[in-house]
Deep mutational scan, measured.
Amino acid sequence: MGFKLLSKLLVYLTASIMAIASPLAFSVDSSGEYPTVSEIPVGEVRLYQIADGVWSHIATQSFDGAVYPSNGLIVRDGDELLLIDTAWGAKNTAALLAEIEKQIGLPVTRAVSTHFHDDRVGGVDVLRAAGVATYASPSTRRLAEVEGNEIPTHSLEGLSSSGDAVRFGPVELFYPGAAHSTDNLIVYVPSASVLYGGCAIYELSRTSAGNVADADLAEWPTSIERIQQHYPEAQFVIPGHGLPGGLDLLKHTTNVVKAHTNRSVVE
């Protein structure tokens, strides 16, 4: 069995187990497998329904001669939608809004960016022009300005110390501490036991640490421990890039980060 097929099978099995364990909360999309990078042309966006009122959005972007996937989250909030992270750029984010209108038909009224990198804030200006209120932590807003990236308009308070959590509509926002970046936030959907790890969490097929220019490698494993301790009931975990899975993604990420750190020390 090929690795790609095995990865998709694991996603399907995880979703099936969740649907059985929580039949009222989960209505997993039966329309197909989780979209992969090879299936999404740059400039297009796919939506994948995880649970009743919960979707991931998947886009792709060219970077350094390669094409990478990027995940975000959409959560229903009454007759409105909360968006977590842009679709990595203005063109993708405009396509995301169009796809949401086509498939869901509810307005996106608020959006949260989970850290300051372009795959999370690139497209904020498109959201703002569409009347979406954009939010991020003060740290993310400051770092985005320093980096020359787009800056969300509103500040999220109460997320300055490791372990801080605040309720934001249908989700809980959690600051686990520094990891992929010093400002990275985690998003949890309690009604569906869905954990969105953003770039602080890796997919299972990833074996290298990737972009760690703004990471705190020493603190990252401790931050992941905080996530595990705060959300032990999480059933569906979405990484910032690639295929979702279960809580095993947290341990896998820790292993990859520690291996990278150990290699760096040896070198």
Rank of each mutant, 00 (worst) to 15 (best):
228 Q>E: 12
253 T>I: 06
62 S>T: 07
142 R>A: 12
39 E>S: 12
91 K>A: 15
126 V>F: 10
91 K>P: 14
94 A>G: 11
179 A>V: 06
115 H>I: 02
206 R>Q: 15
49 Q>L: 09
12 Y>D: 15
24 L>N: 15
25 A>E: 12
155 S>T: 13
252 H>E: 01
248 D>E: 14
156 L>E: 03
7 S>E: 09
155 S>K: 12
118 D>M: 06
63 F>P: 05
156 L>W: 02
219 E>H: 11
177 G>R: 02
96 L>Q: 01
137 S>P: 06
42 V>T: 12
249 L>K: 01
114 T>W: 00
98 A>R: 14
33 E>Q: 08
142 R>S: 12
160 S>Y: 10
198 G>K: 02
137 S>I: 07
98 A>G: 13
165 A>I: 13
261 T>A: 11
64 D>M: 08
38 S>R: 10
100 I>E: 01
104 I>D: 01
169 G>S: 05
66 A>L: 14
196 Y>M: 06
93 T>E: 00
206 R>P: 06
215 A>V: 06
243 L>T: 14
153 T>K: 11
72 G>Q: 00
119 D>V: 03
220 W>R: 03
123 G>I: 03
151 I>A: 07
249 L>M: 13
172 E>L: 05
29 D>L: 07
221 P>D: 07
106 L>Q: 14
82 L>K: 00
198 G>I: 05
148 G>D: 09
217 L>C: 01
160 S>F: 09
181 S>L: 02
251 K>G: 13
70 S>Y: 02
194 V>H: 03
132 V>Q: 01
68 Y>I: 15
21 A>W: 09
254 T>I: 11
244 P>G: 07
192 A>V: 13
165 A>E: 13
158 G>I: 04
224 I>K: 03
138 P>D: 08
190 P>S: 11
55 W>R: 02
111 A>W: 04
144 A>T: 11
150 E>P: 02
100 I>C: 02
38 S>C: 06
247 L>P: 13
1 M>K: 06
185 L>M: 11
38 S>V: 07
145 E>Q: 13
250 L>W: 01
247 L>W: 15
65 G>H: 08
242 G>E: 05
126 V>Q: 05
160 S>G: 14
197 G>S: 04
12 Y>Q: 07
199 C>E: 00
147 E>H: 15
188 Y>C: 03
232 P>T: 11
94 A>C: 04
258 K>E: 13
130 A>T: 09
266 V>G: 13
28 V>W: 07
228 Q>D: 08
83 L>F: 04
89 G>C: 01
17 I>N: 08
204 L>F: 09
183 D>F: 02
157 E>G: 13
220 W>P: 02
224 I>L: 06
61 Q>R: 15
195 L>H: 05
93 T>G: 00
37 V>G: 15
225 E>F: 11
14 T>L: 08
265 V>G: 12
248 D>I: 11
188 Y>L: 01
39 E>N: 15
37 V>Y: 15
150 E>D: 14
7 S>R: 07
67 V>F: 15
166 V>S: 07
11 V>M: 05
148 G>H: 11
84 I>A: 03
7 S>L: 07
240 G>P: 03
21 A>S: 10
226 R>F: 04
235 Q>Y: 10
249 L>R: 01
127 L>W: 00
148 G>V: 05
18 M>I: 14
247 L>S: 14
198 G>Y: 03
44 E>C: 05
115 H>W: 00
16 S>D: 07
100 I>N: 03
3 F>R: 06
46 R>C: 06
6 L>G: 10
176 P>A: 09
260 H>T: 12
36 T>P: 15
202 Y>D: 07
163 G>K: 07
140 T>E: 04
164 D>C: 04
233 E>Y: 12
172 E>T: 06
135 Y>H: 08
32 G>R: 08
231 Y>I: 03
175 Y>A: 02
133 A>F: 11
261 T>N: 13
133 A>K: 14
134 T>M: 05
64 D>S: 12
218 A>V: 12
140 T>W: 02
170 P>F: 04
3 F>N: 15
50 I>M: 08
81 L>K: 00
79 D>E: 12
123 G>Q: 04
65 G>Y: 06
116 F>C: 03
136 A>F: 04
158 G>L: 07
209 A>N: 14
115 H>F: 01
94 A>K: 14
71 N>V: 02
39 E>P: 14
214 D>M: 05
23 P>V: 10
188 Y>A: 03
33 E>F: 07
213 A>H: 11
203 E>G: 07
21 A>T: 14
147 E>Q: 11
231 Y>K: 00
142 R>Q: 13
199 C>S: 03
150 E>W: 01
106 L>D: 07
229 Q>W: 13
208 S>P: 07
245 G>N: 04
210 G>R: 05
102 K>W: 11
224 I>D: 00
71 N>M: 00
169 G>R: 05
3 F>M: 13
260 H>I: 08
107 P>M: 08
199 C>G: 01
1 M>T: 04
146 V>N: 12
83 L>S: 03
143 L>V: 05
251 K>S: 11
44 E>D: 09
230 H>L: 11
205 S>Y: 13
47 L>W: 02
263 R>C: 06
118 D>P: 06
41 P>L: 11
23 P>R: 09
234 A>W: 01
3 F>C: 06
173 L>C: 02
11 V>H: 14
228 Q>S: 14
202 Y>W: 06
37 V>I: 14
153 T>Q: 12
169 G>Y: 05
16 S>A: 14
71 N>A: 07
237 V>D: 02
4 K>V: 04
199 C>L: 01
235 Q>M: 10
172 E>W: 03
160 S>H: 13
118 D>H: 05
52 D>T: 11
234 A>R: 01
232 P>R: 10
66 A>M: 14
164 D>M: 13
86 T>A: 05
33 E>T: 07
53 G>V: 07
132 V>R: 02
177 G>N: 02
114 T>C: 01
22 S>Q: 11
155 S>H: 12
62 S>Q: 07
201 I>H: 05
121 V>P: 04
141 R>H: 07
88 W>V: 02
267 E>Y: 14
104 I>H: 04
100 I>S: 03
213 A>G: 10
167 R>P: 12
95 A>E: 11
260 H>R: 10
176 P>S: 04
119 D>M: 01
119 D>P: 00
188 Y>I: 02
93 T>N: 00
140 T>M: 03
152 P>A: 02
111 A>I: 05
9 L>H: 09
123 G>R: 04
42 V>L: 07
196 Y>D: 03
160 S>I: 11
84 I>C: 03
214 D>G: 10
151 I>D: 04
130 A>K: 12
241 H>T: 01
42 V>F: 06
51 A>V: 13
79 D>N: 10
26 F>D: 13
37 V>M: 14
167 R>E: 12
148 G>P: 04
86 T>L: 01
47 L>Y: 02
190 P>H: 07
31 S>M: 09
253 T>E: 00
161 S>K: 13
9 L>M: 10
259 A>I: 11
168 F>N: 01
144 A>E: 03
208 S>H: 09
132 V>I: 11
160 S>D: 12
167 R>G: 11
66 A>E: 15
172 E>D: 08
40 I>Y: 15
5 L>E: 11
108 V>M: 03
229 Q>P: 05
264 S>L: 10
251 K>N: 10
99 E>H: 15
100 I>Y: 04
16 S>K: 06
52 D>M: 09
174 F>R: 02
59 A>K: 05
191 S>I: 09
211 N>M: 10
121 V>M: 01
79 D>L: 08
184 N>S: 03
102 K>F: 09
199 C>N: 02
169 G>A: 06
91 K>H: 12
127 L>E: 00
48 Y>L: 15
204 L>S: 10
249 L>F: 06
196 Y>R: 02
120 R>Y: 02
185 L>V: 10
28 V>P: 08
4 K>N: 14
19 A>K: 15
72 G>N: 02
52 D>Q: 10
244 P>L: 09
178 A>M: 08
266 V>C: 04
164 D>V: 10
117 H>F: 00
182 T>E: 10
121 V>N: 03
47 L>Q: 05
240 G>D: 05
120 R>L: 01
254 T>E: 14
201 I>P: 02
65 G>R: 08
